[in-house]
């Protein structure tokens, strides 16, 4: 892990990896979305509204996965003092918040024709909304510090403590009565017909690669800005 602690070594890998993640990611999103909108049949119960699945599920996965990434990076920063952990955690926060918001909005749009309501204060939706507020809090805390190459100890602890919400979101449809359907994709398989399910694979992989590309761009921006600021400070001190 510390082999990539050197920002110069990290940038050598990140520079060619960024366009690969973005181009392959966008292509897979387009392929999966086209298949989901044009090639799959409507669901026997939900009708055409099931097509929102292909963007809603990747958004939910990335909202939760993003916070898991922040929590892991925070542990790595606090325990091993890895110099890139804070940069990574900072870079994940904004796209993580965006995909959490997309998950909430697309879920709400899906809910209106399917359940007859835009919103319900049940376990799944409320815990996802809490995740969005956690992201806002994290972004605010991280931006309170001028140092772009790390986050404060309090911000890192907030990132770790906030991860308590991730298993709550995951299990919410099991623990509480909910309008939201139960877990339909588990390690044991899927209850969704393969005819409807298959475009989800390209959109989940595509959005994940796209998310990775955005995180790499934001990490590169933070590292470059930190370099310029350090140089300015040296010049001012000289």
């Amino acid at each position: 892990m510390h082999a990539y602690a050197n920002p110069a070594r990290f940038l050598k890998i990140a520079r060619p990896l960024t366009p690969i993640c973005l181009v392959v990611g966008i292509l897979l999103i387009l392929i999966g979305s086209y298949a989901g909108l044009a090639l799959t049949p409507p669901d026997y119960l939900q009708g055409d509204s099931v097509r929102i699945l292909y963007i809603h599920v990747p958004a939910a996965w990335l909202g939760m996965g993003g916070w898991t990434g922040i929590a892991i990076a925070s542990i790595v920063q606090l325990v091993w003092r890895h110099p890139l952990a804070g940069v990574a955690a900072r870079a994940i926060a904004v796209p993580g918040a965006l995909f959490t918001a997309i998950c909430l909005v697309t879920g709400s749009i899906w809910g209106r024709p399917t359940w007859g309501t835009w919103w319900e204060w049940d376990g799944r939706m409320t815990s996802m909304l809490v995740l969005l507020f956690l992201y806002f809090g994290y972004i605010g805390l991280a931006n309170a510090s001028d140092d772009r190459t790390s986050v404060s100890r309090a911000t890192a602890i907030f990132g770790i403590v906030g991860a308590v919400n991730i298993p709550i979101i995951n299990r919410s449809v099991v623990w509480w009565n909910s309008l939201h359907q139960g877990p339909s994709i588990t390690l044991r398989g899927s209850t969704i017909s393969s005819e409807i399910l298959w475009p989800l694979a390209p959109t989940v992989i595509g959005f994940s690669l796209f998310f990775g590309g955005i995180v790499l761009m934001r990490m590169r921006a933070n590292l470059a800005q930190a370099k310029v600021e350090a140089r300015m400070r040296r010049l001012a001190a000289a």
């Binding site: 909108l37 055409d48 509204s49 097509r51 929102i52 997309i102 899906w110 209106r112 024709p113």
Partner: peptide
């Protein structure tokens, strides 16, 4: 359902 689907994808 299509206006809802279009709105979700557009956003």
């Amino acid at each position: 359902h299509w206006p809802f689907i279009i709105a979700a994808y557009a956003l």
